[in-house]
């Protein structure tokens, strides 16, 4: 005598043996199997035939396992990248701390600590950028396209970028001079250096990167 519940339990065991161990897919697959069996029985099949047809329709467990693994791998990879991004931000913040402490107490920053401070901020910015790229879902690859610029606009854009870039370099010079001559940088010069660095990066982006826009 055919026992449907026993057969479904056996099918579950086969699925587990094939490696579909996470509860959600298996539960979903079982619900699907039961719906299909019900449908087959409504079409006139006996319970045992309905079960066999439905199991065949669900497909081979090892193929399903391979497909599930693909999505799990993607998920794990994404989580590892997010973890590395967060760790990068924390490590960057830790590297900037000695400089900040010296700056708070003495209003100066020794060259070694300034180096760490710059390294820390570079790490924070890089990690933050990586996190943004991961968190913002990639719907399409290569989804931005270059926009053609008129012959007048292109040199204006490059020129403006270069001017901003040079202004940034100029603002960083006092801090560099202080580091060379005294081995430390004062608070005021450090502020100008940060501002200069921002202008340098912004100017560089405007001058050397092609204008792109995102394709819908």
């Amino acid at each position: 005598m055919f026992d449907l519940e026993k057969s479904i339990a056996e099918w579950r065991k086969q699925m587990l043996a094939a490696g579909i161990k996470t509860p959600v897919p298996l539960e979903e697959l079982e619900i699907h199997l039961r719906e299909e069996i019900e449908q087959q029985m409504k079409s006139g099949w006996l319970e045992s035939n309905a079960f066999e047809i439905s199991v065949q329709r669900i497909g081979r467990p090892e193929l399903m396992k391979a497909e599930f693994e693909k999505s799990e791998r993607t998920f794990m990879k994404r989580n590892i990248k997010i973890g590395m991004g967060v760790a990068g931000i924390l490590a960057g913040a830790a590297l900037t701390m000695p400089g900040y402490i010296q700056l708070r107490d003495e209003l100066v920053m020794a060259s070694g600590r300034l180096g760490l401070w710059v390294l820390g901020w570079s790490l924070i910015i890089w990690s933050f950028g990586s996190l943004l790229r991961i968190i913002r879902p990639k719907v399409f690859n290569g989804k931005s396209e270059e926009v053609e610029m008129t012959p007048v606009k292109q040199p204006v854009k490059t020129g403006a970028g270069m001017v901003v870039l040079l202004m940034g370099v100029a603002l960083m010079l006092p801090a560099a001079a202080q580091v060379c001559s005294e081995g430390l940088v004062r608070f005021e010069a450090l502020c100008w250096m940060v501002f200069g660095l921002a202008l340098l990066v912004g100017g560089g982006l405007v001058a050397f990167f092609p204008y792109k826009h995102r394709v819908a």
């Binding site: 467990p61 497909e67 994404r78």
Partner: peptide, 30 residues
């Protein structure tokens, strides 16, 4: 193949294209 739909659905959910929720149908089936 019926079973192959679910890995695709899960992948799409991980990519943030779709979302899911468990609910009971009118027949009481989850």
């Amino acid at each position: 193949t019926d079973g192959m739909l679910y890995p695709v659905l899960h992948r799409m959910e991980h990519r943030g294209l779709i979302k899911s929720r468990w609910a009971e149908s009118e027949t009481g089936r989850k």
